[in-house]
Amino acid sequence: MEKTIKTTPMFLLPKVASDGMAARVMLAFLATAGLFYVNIMPAIVSGLIDSLNFSRSDAGMVGSLNIYGAAAGALLAVFFVGRWHWKPQAVALLLMLMALDILSIFIEQPLTMKLTRGLHGVVGGVLVGVSFAVIARVSQVHKTFGYLLFVQFGLGGLGVMFLPQLEPQFGTAALFLSLAAFSLASFIMLLFLTDYPVKVPSSDDIEVPIQWRPLSAALLAVFLFQGANMGLYAYIIDLGKAYGLTIDFISPTLGISAWAGLVGAWLVILFSTKFGRTLPLFGAMLLTVLATVALHWSEVQWVFWLANVLVGITWAFSIAYLLGVCAEFDKAGKMAALGGFASKTGLASGPFIAALMLDAQGYGVLINVAAVALVLGLLICLYPSQLLDKAGKAGQDEMM
């Protein structure tokens, strides 16, 4: 039996149904608020280069430290979750995020910006961890994560489509105010959410041992895949400009690419494990490699457009399967956060490595390095995915 820890309502306002669509959307906004800058990273990096004259290296490092901070915050959240009521934590974290975003508008020095955005990442990472803990208390958790993907890719698409065009007129204020506005919207939604009390599992629950070898392979594949993609994505606006494309063409392309991620998320729901895990992963990651290599010919508009749209679809599709593979080797759920940690460190390391390379090298070398990392990730993920597929087939055979 499970015992429920009762909590005192923080706000005396009407509450939406705890398992209803409105609650799922609000929780999706809350979880996205801590990491929304990732979805508009190209606009942020490009804005720092164009508005504040940051070098490519400094601009990429700002984005990298922002996500490294989020990875640290995600681990730090482990010590917060369950210790105190989650709503006061979320309120404090959202207020801190808004303050740091507004402060960022007035910063013009690279070092100060790096430190500020790094701190912003830590705060946002804790918020994501707290939000995920609350989402885990909702019935049919996968539905809420489905809404989460739609919020991230849908609004991220709008961000990369319109913010780069506002940046020449309003500078970085357009970027950071949009992040603060997102946090404000999440804060308002928070007031209408119910308490979602903590359920403590019974001491009779059986612990299943973690399969560390395949789990480690899956985590490494996640790290490489996320790092390779984000290393290029953070600079994709500047890459397009370097190949002679205009912002009027690049921005709509990136918006469509982000929205294409919704197709990838829908395909995951459609396919599930009907075709196993290995075949969908192999096909999607191979397409990601080919689309990445195609960026060498970015001066051709349709090639740049198609490559970005393909990556938008396969990125959402592949990462959902990869994180699912990680979860399959941790039935007890104790190490589920490691998949998210590997994802965030990969997202942070990509721009970090790219920033170091772009000081002396052009985008051609960066594209090649990203393609090699994707191939390695593809090869490494075959081991855990095939292991799961064989185990699933064996289980089906026993039932026949």
Rank of each mutant, 00 (worst) to 15 (best):
F150V: 11
M41L: 10
L94Q: 02
A265N: 05
I206W: 03
L48F: 05
A218R: 07
A17T: 06
D205W: 01
G362A: 09
F329H: 05
G82T: 11
I206T: 15
L13M: 10
I269Q: 05
A181G: 14
S51D: 11
F54N: 09
L239F: 04
N66M: 10
T278L: 12
G20H: 09
W259I: 12
I105D: 09
A294R: 06
I67L: 11
M1N: 08
G124H: 03
Q152A: 07
T273A: 07
F11D: 01
V62F: 04
G125V: 07
P201I: 08
T345I: 15
D101P: 06
A221H: 07
A294G: 02
K393E: 12
F36D: 02
G171R: 03
M98T: 10
D238L: 06
Q89D: 05
T116H: 03
G124W: 03
G125M: 08
V81G: 00
D58C: 00
K390V: 08
Q386F: 09
G34K: 04
S18I: 14
K114A: 06
M285C: 08
A218C: 08
L347H: 05
G82V: 12
A33H: 08
G227S: 15
P88R: 06
P351M: 08
L127A: 03
V130F: 02
I256V: 13
L111M: 12
A336E: 12
K390Y: 11
L245S: 02
T278K: 09
G156E: 06
A355S: 15
Q396P: 10
V300K: 11
Q152M: 14
A284P: 12
L270F: 11
L338M: 15
S318P: 10
A320P: 13
L191I: 05
I135S: 00
F249A: 12
P214M: 07
F145I: 11
I210F: 06
A22R: 13
V45E: 03
M41Q: 09
S178K: 01
N53E: 14
L12G: 02
V365E: 14
L127I: 05
I40Y: 01
F36I: 15
S216M: 13
A291C: 09
Q152F: 04
L27T: 08
L166P: 12
G124C: 01
K3F: 08
L184R: 00
S57A: 11
G377R: 09
G339S: 14
L65E: 08
Q165W: 00
V123Y: 04
F80E: 02
S257F: 05
A373E: 12
T172C: 09
S216Y: 12
G125W: 03
L13E: 10
V325G: 03
L387P: 00
V138L: 02
I44G: 00
L232K: 06
P168C: 03
F36R: 02
T116S: 14
L374W: 11
G350V: 10
G146Y: 04
M161I: 04
L366C: 09
K241V: 14
Y363I: 04
L94Y: 07
D359R: 12
F271V: 14
P351G: 01
I107G: 01
P209E: 15
F36V: 13
